[in-house]
Write a protein that binds this DNA or RNA. Structure first.
Lengths: 261, 261
DNA sequence: CGTACCTTTGATAGAGTTCAAGAACGGTGG
DNA sequence: CCACCGTTCTTGAACTCTATCAAAGGTACG
């Protein structure tokens, strides 16, 4: 969708001001430094989609003044917590999930670098999902109050709207697709998103378990596993554990739309 | 959720300026008249949720200057059409649906009075779903460009965020619930929404067919029909065609969360 | 290097779909 | 006002897909 150039992502360690949320605790040079962060960020083409203008970028720089590291297994936020900020994933991988009263839970999204997380909290001022890191990750903290004052609402609307469209797609998947179609759609979606981030479209590493995939696309983990095996037998993909290689994109696409031939 | 008073909705015929989108084509008095529309609208508590302040209401009045009638079966907009406006449902009932390449379609939402429709188009400037009236309806047209200038972004964020949370709920339903749980959840949801509009929570008229219900909650129309019959046999509801009466709310709730006892 | 977690694969069963046919309803026109 | 037609709804029967239960094998992480 975005014609973002294929950029490698050399994750330089960056300064670790992980917990500090008070900008006044930093010197001027640090502030200046932060000012140019977004403009030089490798993810700038993705972060607020459709690409920000130079001046927008400057605005965003003024809003984002904290980063936060989240280790694998730790939560970024939990359902019920009061909403204060959005988060832009800088590196790593997250899953979002909701829990039903009786304990059943469902993964509602996977988030990777360049995506905005936390918009579920805007409406009620409380988060409605849990967001957990599936690998050591880092996010940019975007205090919502400041964002509202920044003149970037237009961008935010777009991001939220795209999320709504994404949800439509997932509903379609959950409501009308059969198991193999679901998994094919899932793989193709992941592939696309990796491409946009400069990774290979054909070879990637799954950050989530079969159980989490199954929860996301409405299948049991056993069915997911069996389908991986079947896809491999059909030479559509090659799987070993979490390493996936897509061998036949068109074939997968055909499975997805169920072109019986 | 909203503690909106139970208001009846006497749908006065109102002036029919359905196609006119040019405000200059109207006299001053007409404009003045429109100025106070939102403030006196019966749906003001619902339309932009969380209730607008008086000054916000005035702002909205300046944005909304057209209404549009949509007859049963007609479309409000179609997937692919360029996005220009949001719509506030003033009366009637709509369904939104998306179509897959191979023709399969899925209902993604039902919209009733007081709800905002069209936010799927903001991100790409094209709509991604079809919205069709299930009965003769009327909407307030909210030109998006004007809304952006109006200072009501904050409200829009909230509406969009709530839509995201709603989608989470539907995903949960589609991904983890069994047939009877889905239908129970669907009925309880409808009931709640009717209450908020001043209608009886226990007795209402379905505007959609079994097929459309099934599409929405991921079941075949036959399963929906069978479940209606079963619920009736279990004295949870009474059904005759599209007339539904809920006899045992707690019972339905128990079905939904699957409290097996 | 061991243990806990994850994955794979088989066998079985059950929930829901599909196919089919008749019934009920609602709108239309004579 | 009634008869007719198309659409929607109901119900049955057979089948299919996927979940569930179970057990063994593999990995990765501490």
């Amino acid at each position: 969708m975005t014609t973002a150039a294929a950029i490698a992502m050399p994750m330089r360690p960056t300064i670790t001001n992980r917990t500090s949320t008070d900008p006044s605790s930093r010197g001027l040079s640090t502030v200046a430094r932060f000012r140019t962060r977004c403009a030089t960020c490798n993810l700038r083409e993705l972060c607020l989609p459709c690409g920000l203008q130079a001046q927008d970028m400057a605005r965003l720089d003024e809003v984002v003044y904290t980063r936060k590291r989240v280790k694998r297994g730790e939560t970024l936020y939990r359902s019920g917590e009061t909403f204060e900020s959005l988060y832009a994933v800088r590196s790593g991988f997250f899953k979002a999930s909701v829990v039903l009263e009786d304990g059943r839970d469902q993964v509602t999204a996977f988030h990777m670098a360049g995506e905005i997380v936390g918009m579920d909290g805007i409406g009620t001022e409380r988060h409605s999902a849990d967001v957990i890191a599936l690998e050591d990750s880092e996010v940019c903290v975007i205090p919502y109050g400041r964002l509202e004052e920044s003149g970037l609402e237009r961008q935010l609307h777009k991001v939220m709207s795209r999320e709504l469209v994404r949800d439509q797609g997932l509903m379609m998947l959950l409501g009308t697709m059969r198991a193999e179609e679901r998994l094919a759609a899932f793989l193709l979606n992941l592939s696309q998103r990796f491409v946009a981030r400069g990774y290979s479209p054909n070879e990637f590493h799954l950050r989530m378990t079969r159980d989490e995939i199954g929860s996301y696309i409405g299948l049991s983990l056993e069915t997911v596993s069996r389908l991986f095996s079947r896809f491999q037998a059909d030479d559509l993909i090659s799987v070993q554990q979490k390493h996936i290689r897509i061998l036949d994109v068109e074939g997968l696409r055909a499975v997805m739309v169920h072109e019986q031939n």
